[in-house]
Computed example of a mutant assay.
Amino acid sequence: MARRAFVALAGVVVALAVGALVMQSGLWVDIVGVGGYETGTVTVTDSDNATPCTAPPNRTAVSACDGSRTLATVDVRIAANYSQRYTGLSDTESLGPDEGMLFVHGEEDVQTYVMRDMDFALDIIYIDANRTITTIHHAPPPPEGERYSERYSGRAKYVLEVNRGWANRTGVGVGDTVELPDGVE
């Protein structure tokens, strides 16, 4: 009887250890999957008084605008659930100059991102619940042979990732206002 109890307890301990490893390593995302990404249009303006700009017709895009003048357009996938946010762009080999990802969190808080398994550099743009850009990081990929980079934090409900240099090239900066896609809360 004592032997059965010991074997059962050992089985539970092994199962918990394996579960902890799967959760910590991110393998659970491979098992569960991330699901399909929605798409939408995001617009960035540099003034509360500016006339909002729009994406070109029939495009799913992020637009940066100076008043009503469009500075840039970036097609985005929306990472709206935990597994999509966890995976992020780590399964992406590269982004075109007009591609990115918008991460949507349940509430505004200090969000911390890492460049997990990334092969290319990004601008990480933090946007608060009032849809104002609070922080921009220009993040390199992790050092050769490492899975993670340093941590990048900012107060945000939404985080936009685009190719590194996009914010500088377009003139997007802290304090700019962001218009989110329909249906994104």
Rank of each mutant, 00 (worst) to 15 (best):
A17L: 15
G106I: 03
V29S: 02
V76Q: 01
G19E: 01
T177Y: 12
D182M: 06
L21E: 06
I125N: 02
T54L: 00
L122Q: 10
T92N: 10
L160Q: 09
V12L: 15
A55D: 05
E93N: 12
D117R: 15
G100N: 09
R3T: 14
G173N: 10
E93L: 12
E108I: 06
G11S: 13
A80Y: 09
V12N: 05
R3F: 13
L122Y: 13
A139V: 05
G154Q: 07
R85N: 11
V162C: 02
N49T: 14
I136G: 03
T177H: 15
K157D: 05
E99G: 02
F6N: 12
G100C: 01
W28C: 00
R169I: 07
D46S: 10
D182P: 10
C65L: 06
D48S: 13
V184C: 02
V29C: 02
R59W: 01
V29N: 08
K157H: 01
L16F: 11
G154S: 05
C65V: 04
F120S: 07
N163M: 10
V42T: 15
R155T: 14
F103T: 00
V74K: 03
N81T: 14
G183C: 08
A8D: 03
Y148I: 02
P52Q: 13
M118V: 05
D123N: 08
R4V: 11
V62L: 12
L27T: 11
A79I: 03
A167W: 01
M23T: 09
L9H: 03
S149E: 06
L9D: 01
A80V: 12
A79F: 07
A80D: 15
D109S: 13
R155P: 09
A17H: 04
A2C: 03
Q111N: 10
V22D: 06
L160H: 05
V14G: 07
D119R: 13
G40W: 09
A64N: 05
V110H: 07
E144M: 08
V76C: 04
N163F: 03
V34T: 15
A20C: 04
P181H: 11
S153G: 11
D48R: 13
R151Q: 13
I78N: 06
S25P: 03
E38D: 13
V29K: 00
I133A: 06
Y148G: 07
R131Y: 07
T45W: 10
D117H: 09
D75M: 04
T87P: 00
R164M: 15
V104H: 02
E107Q: 13
G67A: 11
T112E: 15
S68A: 14
G100V: 02
G183D: 00
R59G: 00
M1N: 05
D123I: 04
M115G: 00
V178E: 02
R131I: 01
D30M: 11
S47E: 05
S47H: 10
C53E: 08
